[in-house]
Simulated scan of single mutants.
Amino acid sequence: MATQPANDTPATDPLDGWSLPAWTYRDAEFYALEQERIYRPSWQVVCHESDIPAHGDWHSLDYCGESVIVVRGKDDVLRAFTNVCRHRGSRLVDGSTGCARKLVCPYHAWTYDLDGRLTGVPDSASYPTLDKGKAGLVPVDLEIWRGFIFVQLEDDGGPSVARMMAPYEDMVAPYRFEELKALGRVTLRPREVNWKNVGDNYSDGLHIPVAHPGLTRLFGKGYGVEAQENVDRMWGAMVDRPSDNWSERLYQNLLPPVPHLPEDRQRYWLYFKLWPNVAFDIYPDQVDFMQWLPVSPTTCLIREISYVLPDDRREMRAARYLNWRINRQVNAEDTALITRVQQGMDSRSFSIGPLSDKEVCLKHFCKKMRDVIPEARLEHQPAAGWSRA
């Protein structure tokens, strides 16, 4: 397995070679701080521009106790708002997607234009304190990176998505993200694990030869990992030897040439994980995004969908189906792995574990977590109320 550290500067932190303590994967107070310090300021992917092409089309995303709606206005501009009426706090829309000429609250029919302005209040004269000009929907920061729409609940001065991905822009460019269209719908997968366990596993390369025989058959020993300041990268080039598994062997045989990709990307799988929880799986045949959203200290929700470029070749359709079959098995294996880890985190016999020099992504993640929440440096769980002390 190839690895590349973020830099050559020797670490001086005595915790650099150790994992986060187990208690941070189950503690309610630590979870609450993560919501405030990590998730609210982070950029979260909602959908692709192609998912909301017409005026009034909208998509929503729920996390951190908030519901965010992204809508295309009559001026063709995409905007994000909290999905909350300014009258009594009612949710405006239900579901994950829809289309509306105006946003009308189902409680008292307060009406908002697609640009967020409050335009209608029944019996408005009876509200002596109402200033319609100040009662529009609350805006949420929005960024579009290569066609994908991200939102941010709070700005803490951190980097934009474009800045996070800047080291890899030339690597991503040939895949023509801006032209992608959804293949199917968003899938939601609840998991009985802390959100960090999903991310730890996603960026871990050491478990590939142990727990993923399919990926090992496809990539041999050529799976690599590296860590940048805000992005992890993983990659693997398919070997020429035919796999013993029929799905993998057919994928190897049927995957057709992709004219817009360089020769060295024709049979290359590429993965990026953006801090703290958004991932892009990039294949010659399709691009997937996945994010793991915390629900409680010991549960999370994995949200994922595939995007593709128009290609009617039968070989490409078959390759995309086989890709799904291969990764369905990988996902099942990963689910079993992270469940075992979460269960082990409950044992009093385990606190922290040593990290290999090859676990560059996990080491970097642990450092960022300790920087944001210094209590993560404590090996053992502090007494209740520690976060308010």
Rank of each mutant, 00 (worst) to 15 (best):
M165I: 15
Q286R: 12
S243E: 05
H59P: 00
D240H: 09
P122V: 15
V172K: 08
E49A: 11
R176W: 13
V330G: 13
W269D: 03
L362C: 08
W235H: 12
L215H: 04
P310V: 08
P128F: 06
T111W: 00
W386G: 02
L355H: 06
S96D: 03
W43I: 10
V372F: 04
G98D: 09
C85I: 13
K132E: 14
P14S: 01
Q152S: 11
A336F: 08
R320H: 08
A384N: 12
S306Y: 01
W292M: 06
V372M: 05
A384D: 15
Y168D: 05
T12N: 06
G89E: 11
G236W: 15
P284H: 02
D16T: 04
V186P: 02
A54S: 13
N201C: 15
L255Y: 01
R317E: 01
R88N: 10
T339I: 05
Y175R: 06
S243V: 10
Y63P: 07
L180P: 08
N253V: 04
C300A: 07
P14I: 04
P242M: 11
L142M: 10
T12E: 09
G116I: 13
M316K: 09
V71F: 07
L218I: 01
V210R: 15
W324H: 10
R249D: 00
A166F: 00
F289T: 02
P174Q: 11
R86G: 07
D155R: 14
P41E: 09
Y168C: 02
I338S: 07
E179L: 05
L274A: 10
R191Y: 03
Q329T: 12
V210M: 15
A237C: 02
P354L: 07
M316E: 09
D244N: 14
I69W: 06
Y251V: 01
V84Q: 12
V225F: 04
F289L: 03
T9V: 14
P14N: 02
L33F: 04
H380R: 15
V138Q: 07
K368L: 07
D357I: 00
R72P: 05
A173L: 12
N7H: 11
S356C: 10
M1T: 12
K273S: 14
V278A: 14
L254Y: 03
L337N: 15
K181N: 12
I302C: 08
Y63N: 05
D311T: 01
V198M: 06
S124L: 02
V121Q: 03
L322H: 06
R340Q: 09
K368W: 01
F148H: 07
D113H: 11
G120E: 10
A6N: 09
C300N: 13
P354W: 02
A6K: 14
N277E: 12
L15P: 07
T82K: 06
L142G: 02
E143Y: 10
